[in-house]
Write a protein that binds this DNA or RNA. Structure first.
Length: 466
RNA sequence: GCCUCAAUAGCUCAGACGGUUAGAGCGACGGACUGUUAAUCCGCAGGUCGUAGGUUCGAUUCCUACUUGAGGCGCCA
């Protein structure tokens, strides 16, 4: 008897009348006095569950079937038949049902068959995948990840596995986690009494990376089109719905490219991702439309069909100033826009994802390419309504003298990043790239507002349970 | 890191201007009914009112500290 996933059974690829085996977790049980029970079974392969029709004549009906509660694990054998009831096309007439694990004390089992708050589910992160909400999020997270790979791979990009451990503390994207094997209670000291990192594992201070960008730029200068896709770490004490200490980021980097090429790539990639989710996860998206935000589907459809708005920082400031809206935070050319500005711009004034370009150089990183005006750099942020910044990117400074001068100005030791500067000495080429926060993208797609519910086991300040 | 709010049944919440037996819905459990499907109907159980102090004759209620959680801001993806 062949084992099928629920997804296969529901896809009409299995003939009615086939003998089948399904395995999964009980979602609900309803007993009928007609001498049968209905058990809906979910295995996570898709949003749908399959209904088992279990007659009381089965040997273990009294002992096992009548004791099934939510999330008992079972292996069921039977015949796939057209459903006699409404609500589903197919069901399984069970011939044998084996229980591999009952749920102890169903009265206190955390994932009872009722609606739970996301905060409560977070405290039971090891069990929350058994809810519609989290399983739908995780299937979409998977679709998004694979759609990103698809898009980049089919456009000639190579996936580069940049290191998670780094020795440069000057990447400029936030606080770093230290990596050490020294005994913190009794570390070795040098002549001056300072901790002697020469004796540490790497012979110097080292950290978890805050971005693979600088490393991937080196591979870009040889493979032309590359990307990193992996976890990233920030030791910021950030307590918001859109920050994690450990999160996943995609960072494409293209050689012989400028800011416009970069924006085009970002837009093309996002559109492909949205389209793929709409195609592959319509059930999951339907669930979000029903329970989270009724606009999620139409919003994505619009994204796919409409181009993103592109606006320069200078024009964005003008539009915000001319809007007449009063803001809490000061607004003038040169200011780093506060999130109330960004939100008003893309949610109220524009109403769709917005690419803001050419920011003042003083509020951006050292590696961004300086524009001819001497005041701005070729940076871009993509703002999504409701989530804020989901992409940050730039054309990189490929001119050695200018990059070196900028580093000095910003008090970054050129020696510490000599290898990065070398790229500008040996066959330098214009290039550009961006970083896409995976959790923020999935948050935007699903309407699930807190990125802690987008990653299986969220790491945030004071929380690394599970 | 800053600001604000919250903590009462397995879950979501109500409540008492300090006073005898702290309530509801959902869930669980039991029963009725039924090719059912968020089933429906009836019933039952379930609480150290976050922790530690303080004020008081008396505190779950007021005060303080702590812990945990949430939201907003900053940092960014």
């Amino acid at each position: 008897m062949t084992v099928y996933s629920v997804k296969q059974l529901m896809s009409e690829e299995v003939k009615v009348g086939s003998e089948v085996c399904v395995r999964g977790w009980v979602r609900s049980r309803r007993d009928s006095k007609a001498g049968l029970s209905f058990v809906t079974l979910s295995d996570g392969s898709c949003f749908e569950a399959v209904q088992l029709v279990i007659e009381s004549k089965l040997a273990n009906y009294e002992s096992d079937i009548l004791n099934l509660t939510k999330d008992c694990a079972i292996i069921a054998h039977g015949t796939l038949v057209a459903s006699q009831g409404g609500g589903q096309k197919f069901e399984i007439q069970a011939s044998k049902v084996e229980v591999t694990g009952f749920v102890e004390s169903p009265d206190t089992y955390p994932v009872s068959p009722k609606r739970h708050t996301v905060e409560y589910l977070r405290e039971h992160a090891h069990l929350r995948i058994r809810t519609n909400l989290i399983s739908s999020v995780m299937r979409i997270r998977n679709t998004v990840s694979m759609a990103i790979h698809d898009y980049l791979q089919s456009n000639g990009f190579y996936w580069v596995h940049t290191p998670l451990i780094t020795a440069s503390d000057c990447e400029g994207a936030g606080e770093l986690f230290k990596v050490t094997t020294l005994d913190l209670a009794n570390p070795p000291r040098d002549d001056k009494g300072k901790v002697d990192f020469k004796q540490d594992f790497f012979g110097r201070e080292s950290y978890l990376t805050v971005s693979g960008q600088l490393n991937v730029e080196t591979y870009c200068m040889g493979l032309s089109k590359v990307y990193t896709f992996g976890p990233t770490f920030r030791a910021e004490n950030s307590n918001t719905t859109r920050h994690l200490a450990e999160f996943w980021m995609v960072e494409p980097e293209i050689a012989f490219a400028n800011l416009m090429d970069n924006a085009e790539l970002a837009q093309g990639m996002l559109k492909h991702v949205f389209k793929t989710v709409l195609n592959k996860n319509s059930d999951d998206m339907g669930f979000f439309a029903q329970f989270i935000d009724q606009n999620v589907v139409t919003r994505l459809e619009q994204m796919v069909n409409d181009d993103f708005e592109m606006i320069t920082y200078t024009d964005a400031i003008k539009r915000l100033e001319n809007s007449g809206k009063q803001f809490e935070n000061p607004l003038y050319w040169g200011v780093d826009m506060a999130s109330e500005h960004e939100r008003y711009l893309c949610e109220e004034l524009i109403g769709k994802p917005t690419i803001v370009t050419n920011y003042p150089k003083d509020i951006k990183a050292f590696y961004m390419r300086q524009n001819e005006d001497g005041k701005t750099v070729a940076a871009m942020d993509i703002l999504a309504p409701g989530v804020g910044e989901i992409i940050g990117g730039a054309q990189r400074e490929e001119r050695y003298d200018i990059l070196h001068a900028r580093m000095t100005e910003m008090e970054i030791e050129p020696e510490a990043l000599a290898w990065y500067l070398d790229l500008r000495r040996f066959g330098s080429a214009p290039h550009a790239g961006f970083g896409l926060g995976l959790e923020r993208a999935v948050s935007y797609i699903t309407g699930v507002q807190n990125v802690r519910d987008i990653i299986p086991f969220p790491r945030t300040p004071k929380n690394a349970a599970f």
